[in-house]
Amino acid sequence: MEKRIKEMLAGYVDGELSEDERMAFELELQRDPELRSELEEFKRLKEVTGMMHYADLPDEVWESYWQSLYRKTERGIGWILLSVGAIFLLCFGLWQALTQFYLDPDVSLFVKMGVSAAGAGLIVLLVSLIRERLFAYHRDRYKEVKK
């Protein structure tokens, strides 16, 4: 079977062929049993997909769609400012800690190690908590819907 005729099968099923194409295709259809079999296969497929439709979301979700999106546009700017500020403060804090605390010979090594361990533990817990919260937030589709 000619490749072009085969591909026209899709257009025939969907009613997308021109008059000339349709006539040429139907002529071939009469001659070729394989093409007829493929046509039946495509018709069955169309019938099955014709029974289906995509699900929609509840009205409440659509009503709050724009609000949710608007907040996200604001959050983007907020996150940038927060991140820049946090980086500055972190750098300043680390510098202060290094010069005022860790390099101070009057503070014992034991205290320095204790403060370092507690600080590291706090950071690990904080990162873990934030990650968990973000994961839960992204999976809650109905966060904008009042319960």
């Binding site: 995509y54 699900a55 929609d56 659509w62 949710s68 996200k72 992204h138 589709r141």
Partner: peptide, 27 residues
């Protein structure tokens, strides 16, 4: 918004992902 959601739904086959994708697309 509805068409963006439906197009994404057809491609990913999951309502939650399609909702997120449609919002991200507008962003």
């Amino acid at each position: 918004k509805k068409q963006a959601f439906q197009i994404a739904l057809g491609l990913v086959g999951n309502k939650d992902d399609a909702y997120d994708i449609s919002q991200e697309a507008f962003l």
